[in-house]
């Protein structure tokens, strides 16, 4: 089969479906809150060193990025599985990797833009455009790893949003703060390490080395993608009565 990896037709339909859903509007308040809090802190005269950690790291990288990635990542494939429209795409002689890859590209782009733009803005506000760029690079890496993970989750379980939230809030949010050894298994930490390295700012402090972060992010992304491709090959139509 001479197919490539990326299929424009699938990507276009996926993007239109994503933007056409009301669920997508859920994504807008979070980035707005991020920017709003940063502007508020700044206008009240707080020093960046005091608000960067709770606002940018805690809210931006810790909540906004993974939650946006979760909504988008479970939406690109999961919603088509739920309403049955996926069958139209599956009944085509396309290698399954092409379907997964095309949807993944859409998820990564949408997430990176939705989160990257506000992160850049608050980065500039807090310090420099260098900090902004660092946050964008980190968020892009995070978009890849999170999207792959959440697309795979939507094929592995019937409750991808719930499980994704548990991963984000309980594993990354709670456990990695209590047990520092689990940090090496947290996408959030890879994002922070990369953003820190690019931004070269005292305002960010990575906890995991850059090499480990890049390697682990790659393993997360590649592993989840391969898993998703394999699950899609064995995709069964369910819920029929006759």
């Amino acid at each position: 089969m001479t197919a490539g990896l990326f299929n424009m037709t699938i990507a276009r339909i996926t993007a239109r479906a994503l933007f056409g859903r009301r669920r997508f509007l859920l994504l807008l308040p979070l980035p707005a809150l991020l920017v709003g809090l940063a502007v508020l802190a700044d206008s009240l005269g707080a020093r960046p060193a005091d608000w960067v950690d709770p606002v940018i790291v805690g809210l931006g990288l810790g909540v906004v990025l993974p939650v946006v990635a979760l909504v988008v990542g479970t939406g690109v494939l999961g919603s088509e599985m739920d309403d049955g429209t996926l069958a139209h795409i599956l009944a085509k002689p396309l290698p399954r990797r092409e379907i997964i890859f095309s949807k993944l590209v859409v998820a990564v782009l949408v997430t990176a833009v939705t989160v990257g733009v506000p992160l850049y803005a608050v980065g500039v506000l807090a310090g420099s455009s260098r900090l902004g760029v660092g946050l964008v690079v980190g968020a892009t890496l995070g978009s890849v790893a999170y999207s792959a993970l959440f697309v795979a989750l939507s094929l592995l379980t019937r409750r991808p949003v719930l499980l994704g939230l548990i991963y984000v809030l309980v594993w990354e949010g709670l456990l990695t703060n209590l047990l520092t050894s689990t940090r090496v298994l947290s996408i959030q930490q890879y994002v922070l390490a990369v953003a820190d390295r690019v931004a070269k700012s005292d305002l960010l402090t990575g906890n995991v080395s850059l090499a480990v972060s890049l390697a682990m992010a790659f393993i997360f992304a590649a592993g989840a993608t391969l898993l998703a491709i394999d699950r899609l090959r064995s995709f069964s139509v369910v819920g029929e009565t006759s």
Binding site: M1, D83, T85, A91, K92, E240
Partner: peptide
């Protein structure tokens, strides 16, 4: 085996469309 679809068409009962 997705390659079967080059010679196969399916109209399912479930009428979900985009």
């Amino acid at each position: 085996n997705p390659s079967v679809y080059s010679g196969l068409g399916l109209v399912s009962e479930r009428e979900a469309v985009h």
